[in-house]
């Protein structure tokens, strides 16, 4: 396993996440796509830390923080989805169209 392998996997993960976030109609699906993008970044950071700067820990530290922050963000997102679901009985993005621009 070389750095290139890790980068390829994380790039793929990022693209899958990006594709999912942009094309999903279900808000939960969009959230899953965004999580994949976060994880691609985490994988990148850990791999760079391991292969390019094995003496330091900066990459791993950023990874830990990112995980915690992403979890907090998802909690808020799910709470908002709950609020929407209670009011409108839907989690599909195209049904949420009260505000128009």
């Amino acid at each position: 396993m070389t750095l290139a392998h890790y980068l390829a996997v994380s790039g793929l993960l990022f693209c899958i996440g990006l594709f999912g976030a942009l094309t999903r109609r279900n808000i939960i699906g969009i959230l899953m796509g965004i999580e994949l993008m976060f994880n691609a970044a985490n994988l990148n950071l850990a791999a760079f830390n391991r292969f390019l700067a094995p003496a330091g820990v900066a990459g791993n530290v950023v990874t830990l923080f990112t995980m915690a922050v992403a979890a907090a963000e998802i909690v808020v997102g799910l709470a908002l989805i709950m609020a929407i679901y209670r009011n409108m009985n839907t989690v599909y993005a195209e049904d949420i169209n009260l505000l128009k621009g």
Partner: peptide
Amino acid sequence: SEGAIKYFLFGAFSSAIFVYGISFIYG
């Protein structure tokens, strides 16, 4: 709620891209 969920989706999306950017700069 609708304003918040839209704000949230765009916000989370852009911060995922932001972290990916950080990982490249670190790399």
